[in-house]
Simulated assay, not measured.
Amino acid sequence: MDLMELFFITLGFAVIVCYGVRLLLFSKMLFPKIWFPLPKYFFTSMGAWAGCISPSPRPTEVVTGASEGIGRAYALALAEQGMNVVIMSRTKAALEDVAKEIVATTGQRVKVIVTDLMEDVFSEIEDQLCGLNIGILVNNVGMLPSVIPSKFLECAELDQTITKVINCNVKSMAKMCKIILPGMENRGKGVIVNISSGIASIPFPLYTLYAASKVFVERFSQGLQAEYRDKGIIIQTVAPFGVSTRMADYQKTNTVTLSPEDFVKSSLQYLRAGDKTHGSVCHIFLGWLLQSIPAKILYAECVLHGLQDYVKKRAQKTSVSVSSASSEQGRNG
């Protein structure tokens, strides 16, 4: 056997081993309950309270909120695990409705904090959280510059939009970690879940500002996890793709687009799966697929225009459906 033949045999064996390891790691994601089991009292062992932190929508912005969508689903899911819950948003009525629902269905205590995380309110939030043994923090913050994807310079009120996106997606998340993390470090335990986005897996045209801000969420979380892993603290990025929320125009649920409740239930099973997860099997596959598509194809003008047209049509369809439902309610009323 000559040297060249030996080289190719070794190379082929290395490739087989590499893909075998990848396949094994992916197979683990198919069975999170087996590979990443959580003790029965895992959540309550972290502390008495869970904080679901996120601003709610303003008329001109698309923002996730603790009063609806993924934030509401996390609050309910953690309450069902026996935790008291702190929920934050700027919409008092909606928060109170969620609080009543949590109390009625789980019997857990709920603390409502009406605040706007887009403003400099963090010292006030810290005062209101003082004395609470917060074992889990969910930073569910996310603002899209526009429902319809568009190029960076085409964003309306671009200077204001840049400031708002950074304050919402970046600053508020880092500030909340700064408030909550010291208590977790002192107790030697805790969980922080920072919600990113699946589209932050690659540079994503038409969502450039949003995707870049979510990359910060991932890198910040991964850095914190490396710093505080030895302190017994789990810090994880959750990067979903399609979830039927306001941000996604309440798309119909299917195999890819999950309801907030189903997504949160699935994502909590991956808490011990590493510093980043897409939260569900189908979204993990989508993440792999997105990273496998050649950039020349993904960034082609025809593909980008197709994406814009698809989202526009979907938004129009959603608007028509809402208008029809409102008219029907008016006639019935």
Rank of each mutant, 00 (worst) to 15 (best):
A239F: 04
Q225H: 14
K231Q: 11
P240R: 03
G274I: 12
T277H: 02
I235M: 11
P240T: 11
L268K: 11
D275T: 14
Q222F: 00
A248C: 11
S259M: 06
S280D: 03
Q225I: 02
S267R: 04
D230V: 04
V243Q: 03
A273E: 04
T253S: 07
D230L: 07
A239C: 14
V238Q: 05
A248S: 15
A248H: 10
G223F: 01
C282H: 03
G279K: 01
N254T: 04
V256G: 00
F263H: 07
D275F: 05
G279M: 07
I233N: 08
V238A: 10
F263C: 07
M247T: 10
A226N: 12
S266C: 13
P260H: 00
F263G: 05
R246E: 06
L271A: 05
V243S: 06
K231A: 12
F241K: 09
S266L: 06
E227C: 09
Q236Y: 08
A226R: 14
K276G: 04
S266E: 15
T257S: 02
S259I: 11
T277Q: 04
H278P: 01
T253H: 01
Q269C: 11
D262I: 05
T245Y: 05
Q251P: 02
K265R: 15
T237E: 05
Y270Q: 13
Q251D: 09
G279H: 00
R246Q: 08
I234D: 04
Y250P: 03
L224E: 05
Y250L: 07
I284C: 05
Q225M: 12
S259L: 07
D230R: 13
V256P: 00
V264H: 07
Y250G: 01
Y270E: 13
S280L: 04
R229Y: 08
V256R: 09
K265T: 15
A248F: 11
P240F: 05
E261Q: 15
K265E: 12
L271K: 08
A248I: 03
Q222S: 10
D230H: 12
V243H: 01
I235D: 01
Q269A: 11
E227G: 02
V256L: 15
T253C: 12
R229M: 08
D262F: 00
S244H: 10
Q269Y: 00
H278K: 10
Y228M: 09
T277L: 04
P260M: 00
T255D: 09
M247C: 08
E227W: 03
